[in-house]
Design a protein around this nucleic acid. Structure first.
Lengths: 241, 241
DNA sequence: TCAAAAGTGTTAGTCTTACACCCATGC
DNA sequence: GCATGGGTGTAAGACTAACACTTTTGA
């Protein structure tokens, strides 16, 4: 293992989850006081990130970040875009920060996102906070764009890939699933029609179990079967441009 | 302008087109004779590529490659993935090649694809050749994977984004369009149903013009209207997982 | 007049949409 | 017994899938 950092290559991670009918993204506090404790020069938020080590792959670097945050290994991360414009780091505070880290101004950032179920707890929460994606705080670098690109990528795939189930707990109710679609796409769906459509899919398997939710009446639980999905999807060809 | 190269950052470009009912990718001959003219140590094919210059953006670097090849500026390129594993350059010939270029073994490659219409001519063809994507020659680096990733990305988007029209000339016939779908997806479509579906789209506009093709009977030409498409697509929300 | 690809219509079945009330339970 | 979210059915209309022949032209 070569633990030296590549000084112009980093991996940024966008962790996302749904909470209270809102899409939330995890950010880390960034602060730097150069002259005095009372004069913070940098005081904003950034995406969790690491420089890539000489003997680490990109995906390994992302996994390390995810693991540090959640304490678990995740298989469903997506590399969605790389940011490497010559002038992407150009504000005074960002340049100062980069210098304080001994890294290059021209840093290439490979961005990943990871979708977590609503009930996932973080391993440690120090300096970390979930923000609604519509009301982000002041962000460093081009992280506003990165977060937005991640969101757009998810939106564009949510209707054709089984991404939505990453937002769900393993066992979920149909109303939870509907609410997830509605929140992510910003639309409203007809409950009866949604249920008919979803329950007609062989890869959404009803369980005997029920769960008591916010309602008085217990609701039936369902699971997503990846195996069944992969079989079914093979034969599906709809021209839909 | 700083014309020095970043010695660990390159952009690879996958140029694609349809020709004779086959998807083709453009490759560049790579050869290096170290000891004698008759003993080629490296003799294979690679994707068109450039190292990124210190003052160039990633997209600019891709544009430069595309422009050198086609003599035109293209707006519809897609950055689809970045390759930066520690050991992605590991064969003797690839290491030799990298060394001969004065670059780093740990080179990060940002990959773009560009879809060209069938009739597009290259500016120069020296050392360049179009290969069927199913029968690629011996390739350098991980370019086999890169090409395949590009193809998968296109396939996954072809039914939900108007990507297909990049493969077409500005004016095209419905049968050409159908054939493009069939080639890309490896499926067969019913001609009557396809025509009905396509002609029902407001963004596929019939022209008065006709063209004489391979057939005796001239065929009507159509165009794709991006403006109309963007308006229509807004209101389209189909949950289709 | 024939060869070649272009172009066309109908029907049965399936899927989608719109819509309003009862159910099971906890309090 | 009532408040809360869970859960259900139907009918009209739209879309899809399957299928075979005629048209226009060049040679």
């Amino acid at each position: 293992m070569d633990f030296r950092k590549l000084d112009n290559l980093s991996v940024d991670c966008v962790l996302l989850k749904l909470e209270n009918n809102a899409l939330k993204v995890l950010l880390r506090k960034r602060s730097l006081n150069l002259f005095s404790e009372n004069l913070p020069i940098i005081d904003d938020w950034v995406l969790p990130s690491h420089y890539v080590l000489k003997s680490n792959n990109l995906g390994e670097t992302a996994n390390r970040i995810f693991n540090e945050l959640t304490g678990e290994n995740h298989l469903n991360k997506s590399q969605f875009r790389t940011y490497g414009n010559a002038n992407r780091i150009n504000s005074d505070k960002d340049l100062l920060w980069i210098r304080s880290r001994g890294a290059k101004n021209r840093t290439i950032t490979v961005a990943y996102y990871l979708i977590l179920p609503s009930n996932k707890k973080l391993k440690q929460t120090e300096g970390l906070k979930w923000f609604k994606i519509q009301t982000l705080p002041e962000l460093g670098f081009d992280h506003h764009k990165i977060i937005n690109d991640a969101y757009q990528d998810i939106k564009s795939k949510i209707n054709t890939e089984p991404l939505i189930f990453n937002f769900m707990q393993i066992k979920f109710t149909l109303n939870e699933l509907q609410s997830a679609f509605e929140t992510l796409l910003g639309i409203e769906l007809d409950n009866r029609n949604f249920r008919k459509k979803i329950t007609s899919k062989p890869y959404i398997v009803p369980l005997e179990e029920k769960r008591k939710g916010q309602s008085k009446k217990p609701s039936r639980l369902y699971m997503f079967s990846n195996e069944v999905y992969n079989q079914v999807v093979e034969t599906d060809h709809i021209i839909n441009i």
